[in-house]
Structure formats: C-alpha cells, structure tokens
C-alpha cells in the first residue's frame, strides 16, 4: 500500500493524543495548573494534528462533513464521529479541570473510555480490510493500542518530570513497561504478517483469476502501458534491503533508545530533558514503524499484476 504521509501522521499522532486523553481522564496527571494546561494542549495538539492530517488524504475535503453520516456500517465514519465526540467530552472535562478547579471523575472516565474506543475505530479502518492480509487480524488493533498507550505514557512521564511531579518516576516505569509490551505485540504482529501472504489467504494469482485450476499462472501482458491508480496506490513495493534497515531503525528509535533514556532518567537524574528526548525519538521510530505498516502491506489486487503464488513466482 502507498505509504502516504497524511495517514502515517494521522494514525501515529491521533493515537498519542487520544492515549493522553485517556490517561488525563483517568487522573494520571497532577494538580498543577501549568502541567494541566500543557498536558491538555498537548493532547489536543496530537489528536487535532492527526485528524487534520487525515483530511489531507482526501481529494475532496470540502465534503469531509459527510463522513459523520455512515456510522452504521463504516469504521472510517465511526472514527470521525468518535473522535469529534471525544474531543467534545474531553473538552467539557478539561473546562472543569482548567477553569473551575473541578475534577469530575465520571466525566473523566467517560472521556477516557471514548478515547480508547476512538483508537479502536482508527485501527479497525485497517483491520477490517480482508483485501490486505497482514492488516486483517486482531493483532492490528492490539498493536495500535499498544503504541497509543506507550507513546502517551512516555509523553505524560516527560510532562510530569518537566513540572516536577512527585509520581513522575512511577509513570516512567509504566512508560517503560508499556513500550516493551507494545513492541512485544508488534513482534507478534510481524510474526503473523510473515505468514499472512496473499497466496496463503487464497488470494494468489491462480485463485484471483480462477485460472490456477489449469496450471501455474504468470502475468504475461499488463492491461496498460504505464502505471495506473491501482498500481500506485495498492501495489507499492519497497526494496527489501531498505525495509529491513527501516525496521531496525523503528526498533532502535521506537523501543531501544527510549527504554535506555528512561532508565537513565530514573537513575541518573536530569529526568525532564532525557524523557523529552526519549519521547521525540520514540515518535520518530513510530513514524518509521507506520511507514512500514503501509509500505510492506500487500493488497489482493496485486495478484492480478504480478505472480503471487510461490510456484509461479
């Protein structure tokens, strides 16, 4: 699949933003107005930037308002509805916290649950697609959750350390655990992805054309002399060498470096700058991870354009 920058930013940033809303709604924060303002703005910044970025993926963004209408059947519509509702409910909760000095635990819990449901709807946009074997698995929502919570916990730890909150260290430990769990889930996702090929799912070239019953099928002549929309959008292929390098980079920036920096922050002091650096590196690693999520994904229509059966390939 074509790794469009708009959807990469959308899925990573909105995950962190709604993850942070969950944590703030569950009162993981601290009653310090500077922290509260910064954390609330950060949550809206990440969620908002993610959502705005998703509209860049539209060719007719003037009609984006219609996307709130089909929640009965469409995960993308549900994502739109849930994200706007969550921004609203979390806004009500934040007004209480920021202006009235009122913590409404129920409103916070509702905002937290809604933010979690929003992350689910985001992941289901991809997990629902039977056409993309490596996305269409329960591992995909799990991985989206893992990274949304890990990234937002790390951001929260950085903010707590910045404002000198007493329980910053505890949240640092949570963040470290969450990063390790998230990457363990991603490892499971990758293991699943290796087996989720088109031919393994019964969507290889022989099955796609139905000609496999005669013999091995090899595309002989393409229907067009130059690449078309389908090929550019769905049959994006990335050099294996570069994919492996990017996977290593994603692992180092997204997992190894933040875990080391968190350990340093916990035991060596100067926590705030180290944690901010850890968060920024993690974010860069996540962008690489999400790039691979799209670029490495095979779409069933590819079977019409190149031999996807192991025999014929």
């Amino acid at each position: 699949m074509h790794p469009a920058a708009s959807v990469i930013v959308f899925t990573t940033f909105s995950g962190i933003g709604f993850g942070l809303m969950t944590l703030l709604g569950l009162r993981f924060g601290v009653e310090n107005p500077w922290f509260q303002w910064t954390a609330t703005i950060a949550a809206y910044f990440f969620a908002g930037l993610g959502l705005l970025s998703s509209t860049l993926h539209l060719r007719r963004p003037d009609r984006a308002w219609r996307a709130f209408s089909q929640w009965r059947s469409s995960w993308l519509s549900r994502e739109g509805v849930m994200s706007i509702l969550t921004l609203g409910v979390f806004g009500l909760y934040s007004i209480g916290v920021l202006f009235l000095d009122v913590y409404d635990p129920w409103l916070g819990a509702i905002a937290a649950i809604m933010a979690l449901v929003t992350v689910l709807t985001t992941s289901m946009i991809y997990a629902q697609l039977r056409t993309v074997p490596r996305w269409s698995t329960g591992w995909t929502p799990l991985a989206f959750y893992g990274f949304a919570i890990a990234g937002s916990l790390l951001l929260l730890a950085a903010l707590l350390a910045t404002f000198g909150a007493p329980h910053a260290r505890q949240v640092e430990q949570y963040a470290m655990a969450a990063i390790i769990i998230a990457w363990a889930i991603k490892y499971g996702w990758w293991r699943h992805a290796e087996t989720a090929t088109l031919s393994a799912r019964g969507s290889g070239t022989g099955d796609a054309t139905g000609l496999g019953r005669i013999g091995s099928v090899r595309p002989f002549e393409p229907p067009n002399t130059s690449p078309n929309y389908l090929m550019k959008e769905m049959i994006y292929r990335v050099g294996r060498q570069r994919a492996r390098a990017l996977r290593r980079m994603a692992l180092f920036l997204g997992a190894v470096a933040p875990v080391i920096l968190i350990a340093l922050a916990t035991y060596a002091g100067a926590a705030a700058p180290l944690l901010i650096l850890a968060f920024l590196l993690h974010l860069a690693g996540m962008l690489a991870e999400r790039w691979l999520f799209f670029a490495e994904a095979e779409h069933a229509v590819g079977s019409f354009y190149r031999a996807t059966d192991p025999m014929a390939a």
């Binding site: 060719r59 007719r60 009609r63 993308l76 697609l129 993309v132 929309y229 389908l230 019409f304």
Partner: peptide, 26 residues
C-alpha cells in the same frame, strides 16, 4: 456529489474495480 475521495472503497475492493479519478478526485 457525495464522494470525498478518501479512496477507502478502492482499498476494500479485492478486484481493483474502483479507481480514484486523477482530475476530479472522486
């Protein structure tokens, strides 16, 4: 007139039956 050109339907189709028009964006 309702299509916002997100392209998700083309992703959902295994047969490559839908193409987002390069000029009109629907």
């Amino acid at each position: 007139d309702k299509c916002m050109g997100c392209g998700l339907c083309a992703w959902a189709c295994p047969y490559g039956a839908r193409e987002l028009d390069g000029a009109v964006g629907v």
